[in-house]
């Protein structure tokens, strides 16, 4: 159903596009069309499981390491369901979150605290907050739904750091007021819709952070996954790298792997 809607949307946009080519497609229409096209390339992943290592580096170069794994399930007609589990450092080992992303409105989120055996419903309003003290905000890591942004295409340019490839530069504007950003500027390659780089501008429209994606690998001949993400905070000089050490697609996860009971069992 989700695909059907997206494909219909795609055809409608393509149709509008073909008309508007005659009359000229606006940058906003082109931005949305490209975002939908990019989103479609990720459709049908069904589920993924991944393990990651995060390196937090302050301005003096001191590092600290976090390790976590995540499971994600694609949901028809709505946002994805996901579980995040922390493994390192040891005092947060076993702490886990369960998130039901929604296309519109706030996401549902529960936190599991293993020392108390407590499942706590938490607010998802903190999307602009720092994820475990890193330079990534929760909203940078949550499931990216088309409906959460409006878009505007700027121009086609050579990809940053890869002059051979061609990228489109486009801007996206968060719909949710609780977002920490006024806009994001993305470089996405035209061939495969892989995001190469994102500049984040804060609410005052000042450049805040830059995220660079690299080490793309393709899974199941379809899904491109970046295995290295580097985030730099221009205000503080702090950096956070995410290195995805393991990714699996279509592992057979079920809806029942994403409820409050299975959250307590997550390891």
């Amino acid at each position: 159903m989700k695909n059907l809607i997206k494909i219909t949307l795609f055809f409608i946009t393509t149709f509008i596009f073909s008309i508007s080519v005659a009359f000229g497609e606006t940058p906003e229409e082109k931005g949305l069309r490209l975002a939908i096209e990019a989103d479609l390339t990720g459709d049908g992943f069904i589920d993924t499981v991944s393990k990651s290592q995060m390196t937090l580096r302050n301005a003096q170069g001191e590092e600290s390491i976090r390790e976590f794994s995540s499971k994600t399930l694609e949901v028809e007609n709505d946002g994805d369901k996901s579980i995040f589990i922390f493994h390192h450092p040891k005092d947060v080992k076993g702490t886990a979150t369960l998130t039901f992303t929604h296309k519109t409105g706030p996401d549902d989120q529960w936190l599991y605290l293993p020392a108390l055996k407590r499942v706590k419903r938490i607010s998802s309003d903190n999307r602009s907050g720092a994820f475990v003290g890193s330079e990534f905000a929760y909203e940078d890591l949550s499931s990216q739904e088309i409906e959460k942004y409006t878009y505007k295409w700027i121009e086609d340019v050579p990809c940053p750091g890869d002059e051979q490839a061609k990228c489109y530069l486009s801007e996206s504007y968060p719909v949710e007021k609780s977002s920490g950003y006024k806009r994001r500027v993305s470089w996405v390659d035209i061939d495969e819709h892989r995001v190469r780089k994102i500049d984040f501008y804060d609410r005052k429209d000042k450049l805040l952070k830059t995220l660079v994606f690299s080490d793309y690998k393709q899974y199941l001949n379809k899904f491109w996954t970046a295995h290295t993400l580097k985030m730099v905070n221009h205000n503080t000089g702090k950096e956070t790298d995410i290195s995805i050490t393991e990714t699996k697609y279509q592992t057979g996860l079920k809806d029942s792997d994403f409820n409050r009971q299975s959250l307590k069992r997550a390891r």
Binding site: K117, R118, V119, K120, R121, K254, S256
Partner: peptide
């Protein structure tokens, strides 16, 4: 000791349970 399926879970032994908000 815990056993579980898609829509059930059962346990036996010594445990800790938190219900509060």
């Amino acid at each position: 000791y815990s056993w579980y399926g898609d829509d059930w879970e059962s346990s036996l032994g010594i445990g800790q349970v938190f219900w509060g908000v």
